[in-house]
Nucleic acid binder design. Structure first.
Lengths: 163, 163
DNA sequence: GTCCATGCAAACCTTTTGCACTATA
DNA sequence: TATAGTGCAAAAGGTTTGCATGGAC
């Protein structure tokens, strides 16, 4: 049995636990999310559902994503593009960080125990109770650099010295 | 001379460098941003401008914030509240991270050389050219914990074991 | 006098909501 | 059959844009 099927089962269990009906739309949305590797936008989801012959309304997609996020089977991300992206959590490390290319939108995942460490120390020092964190590094991926893309620099050239 | 004035001067220099006019609206928006300690929303800004007797249109506020962000004198943040917040960068460490309270929205800043370190190592490993990063830790601040607030837990109780 | 900024309102985009209808259990 | 979900379209909410007017240089 593959991970997609495991996730599907977990989602069905979640629905049962919450006393919610299991519908074909929920099944379809969950299936697409669990079967996709990357970080999906709602537009991506709509497209894949249409390809598969499902005619699912946007509202239902959003409502189902909300359930998937609540169940903790899916994570919601906002990479500053003006819309959200969704990533399933099974079959990968539950805690990981992201490198995000400002040019092409490519997302590379990595893990870092140091970040966990920083979180533990800094939250303890401030009496803060952590629920989750995110470390996102924005820049240019190798491919975009090799394609000659440059990061724009519009800022003050040297604020302090020229003040 | 205080930091607010330094920042104002830098902003005027930025405008001159870019060949852009220095207007009273830009002056007013910049002044409010530089004089404020926290992480301002556009709504906050509008309010403070009104208090000061300035009648500045929303569009002008957004356009001026865009200039301030481009000049690097101001940073834009998105803490997932559905709108952006703005923070001036002078008179504080240019690189710092945030603890964000999910209950009251309080923001606590901290610094971490370890994160810089992680960024350097992981970007080198992936041939990625970093432009900026953000580490945000979400949870409950001390005050909200003491007020008895709990983090909701709606997820699957134990996905793997009960699968 | 030439540009550019401003202000207003309309447009935009993603996400949410109301409601009549349909499907689940 | 009771309860909740679905789909559509409208609304919401923050942000952006078009355009006529006014200000900066």
């Amino acid at each position: 049995m593959n991970d997609t099927n495991v996730s599907q089962r977990l989602f069905r269990r979640y629905l049962k636990d919450q006393g919610l009906p299991h519908t074909r739309q929920r099944e379809a949305v969950a299936q697409v999310v669990f079967a996709s590797a990357g970080h999906l936008s709602v537009e991506d989801l709509e497209g894949r559902l249409r390809e598969m012959g499902h005619r699912t309304g946007k509202a239902t997609i959003y409502r189902t994503l909300d359930l998937l996020v609540r169940s903790r089977l899916v994570m919601e991300h906002d990479f500053g593009e003006g819309f959200k992206r969704y990533e399933h959590r099974l079959s990968r490390d539950p805690v990981h960080e992201h490198l995000i290319c400002l040019e092409c939108g490519r997302v590379i995942e990595f893990e870092s125990w140091e970040v966990q460490d920083v979180q533990a120390r800094v939250t303890q020092r401030h009496g803060f109770r952590p629920a989750r964190h995110k470390l996102e590094i924005y820049g240019l991926c190798r491919e975009c650099q090799e394609a000659g893309v440059e990061l724009p620099d519009d800022g003050l050239t040297c604020p302090i010295e020229r003040a």
